[in-house]
Design a binder for these strands. Structure first.
Lengths: 223, 223, 223, 223
DNA sequence: AATGAATGAGAATTCATTCAT
DNA sequence: TATGAATGAATTCTCATTCAT
């Protein structure tokens, strides 16, 4: 019972931590402020976590765990490449709605970290996804669902890049504003529209080969 | 002449500031260190700039000016859409090589800033580009060079998103590592390869329409 | 029986306290660590002792009681002055071997305490010994065993000073190192050697009178 | 001029530091309190000294420098062993009067330090003295001024031990009280008396050999 | 105008002590 | 009665900013 309470409290403290780190970045977030907002004393924070870094790592872990749970659901759905992509886009949108802080925090940290720490972090966060994407794309290429004239890893990279930017465009203040300026306020708010546009972009990028362009041009010339 | 001297000094101070902010982030960069590295006293720094934030803004402005100069050169080349895109990709790669600090700083700041400041910043930075891209794409659509079934602004957005991520993948420690994990170390180092892959991705995404997919599939079926 | 159990526990807690205070000094020793090492909760510590200082006093008292037990054994042996001194030197050496923590603690505290507290402490610790020594020396003077040209209390003082320093030289890290630098490592390790040298030093200091020096010099001149 | 000011201020700050460390010990002395008492801000303290330890080391160094200056004067006087000892005793008394804080600090630190640090400290502080004493005593032994039946280093050790205790008896609160309890309040206040008594003690301890005791006893028997 | 020493608010972290369970 | 989680005052240290020289 005590354990349960502590678990809930821990979860809550992490929640507050994530929100503070997401809001102010690691450096400007203050342990004192986090404790205050969580309704506890600093002492408790330091009883659970050795220092600010450790606490931050815990927040990051929680963040990533939650994100992974969400992503695992998409991965599981072993559908056609394009419909899989659509599911991913929708997942990003939902995630941005429901877990904005996780994404903001993730983005902040990715931008902030440097040196060896950045490498470690990237390994921890991106390690699995990259391979999974590439493998899936290679299978789709073999099945003829996806263009065969590109490196599957590069395809995976560009695909994930577009998802990342969508994520940031929903979660980070700066990228959200940029999003609006590019697409217009109403368009940016219209998740269905954005999703369908991105899918259109992706499906052509994934389906056609560069060689097809000649055929198309020739065909058009013949018109 | 005195003015000139001061101008040079200002430029130099900003250069140092940019490099420090890029290296350590706004919070961890220290005014004292910047002054020392610039060979001036903190007093001078505070004579020119009211406070750290003001100085940072100045550094950012300088950074953006430089970037804009570079980008203007690409814009100017009013070529075909795809070859324009190729030039842009190449420009990003060159820029990452020659002005890594500007890009790192830009990225850091974009990720870090929040609230009204983020909006102001995005307005200042992305304001022009977004419209220019969209206009150009609309023209290309009218000319039949670019698919007509997508919102030109969304196309511009996705296009710039891919460029941004490429930029970060070259300049930020975290994204560089992610880049390598996705594409492999050798591929990531091979600028020509990366550029050609991205162009392939883009040209199909820009050229074909979603409706073409049916034709393609039917055509393949008939084969 | 319950009382007995508690007594044992108290004794054990004090033992731990003494060892921690001796090891880290009053300030750096932590109540939490003491409780943990004693296998009890801090609550119990604070049930028995009002605060850290009170607990420390209790540790000190126990320490002194133990030391007094040891010293009483020597006192009891009412032998000749010099052989009594030898017994004392040997007792110090044995005590340093077997009860290093008591001595370290005693030394630390003596050096650390200040003001009224220091006075109270000195009264508690040295009160009896000083008088006992002086009385004994006065008796020995009356019996002609000890030089008569010095104040018995000063003699007692110098004698105890030498014992104190020997104690510290065996128990305190600093004084141990000083000991080695003065005497050499092997000499410092050789308890028999040290004891015999100190006894030689003491027996002359206690036996001869300053007036004897003239005689000695005259005698030597005549040689 | 600015430099001069700073030197004076530095000296003053160290003086305050020494007094605080002497009063409260390293751990309980607070950098904030030291700054306040010195009439400066903590920032200044940390501009001059990297951290508390560094500042403490500086205080200790100053302390030792001053003490060494005083001791050097005695050393220089290349007189007879006993008169040299008398000078040393007098120097200790004067030093205790004029530089009580230095001695208190020295004593505190010696008692407090432990492990490798204690060794380093002992090396720094006692290193020279020990050898110098021993050498001088060996010379005096060769000249026949000092008993030949003892190890010169042990003689030096016991001699310095007596000086140390005298020092502490004048400077440390605890040892001062102990001093009074042993010798009586008036005697303890009477520097001349104490000095003469200690010299009497020392001159016999240094002059006679243990073998002389038999002669003395035989001579007394014959009386 | 330039300097850089000084200021002091603010952040991380520790630990004696309390008190609800 | 025992527990040990929670408290929060105190401490070290940093650095943006000011201002006397």
């Amino acid at each position: 019972m005590l354990k349960k309470l502590t678990d809930d409290k821990q979860r809550y403290i992490l929640e507050i931590g994530i929100s503070e780190f997401a809001e102010h970045g690691v450096d400007r977030a203050s342990m004192g402020a986090i404790a205050r907002k969580a309704g506890i004393s600093v002492g408790v924070l330091y009883k659970y976590y050795a220092d600010k870094d450790t606490f931050f790592d815990a927040c990051l872990s929680r963040s990533l765990d939650e994100l992974n749970d969400i992503l695992r659901n998409i991965e599981a759905q072993d559908r056609h490449m394009i419909s899989g992509a659509e599911a991913a886009v929708r997942a990003v949108q939902r995630c941005a709605r429901e877990h904005r802080d996780y994404l903001r925090m993730y983005h902040r940290i990715a931008a902030q970290s440097s040196g060896e720490y950045a490498k470690k972090l990237a390994a921890a966060i991106e390690g699995v996804t990259a391979d999974a994407y590439a493998r899936r794309i290679a299978e789709a290429q073999a099945a003829g669902d996806v263009r065969g004239d590109m490196d599957p890893r590069m395809l995976a990279f560009f695909f994930d890049n577009l998802l990342m930017m969508l994520q940031d465009s929903y979660s980070s203040d700066y990228y959200r504003e940029r999003f609006r300026r590019y697409c217009g306020e109403e368009a940016a708010e219209d998740e269905d529209f954005v999703a369908s546009q991105l899918i259109r972009f992706l499906e052509c990028a994934f389906t056609f080969e560069s060689g097809d362009i000649r055929h198309k041009n020739r065909g058009e010339d013949e018109r």
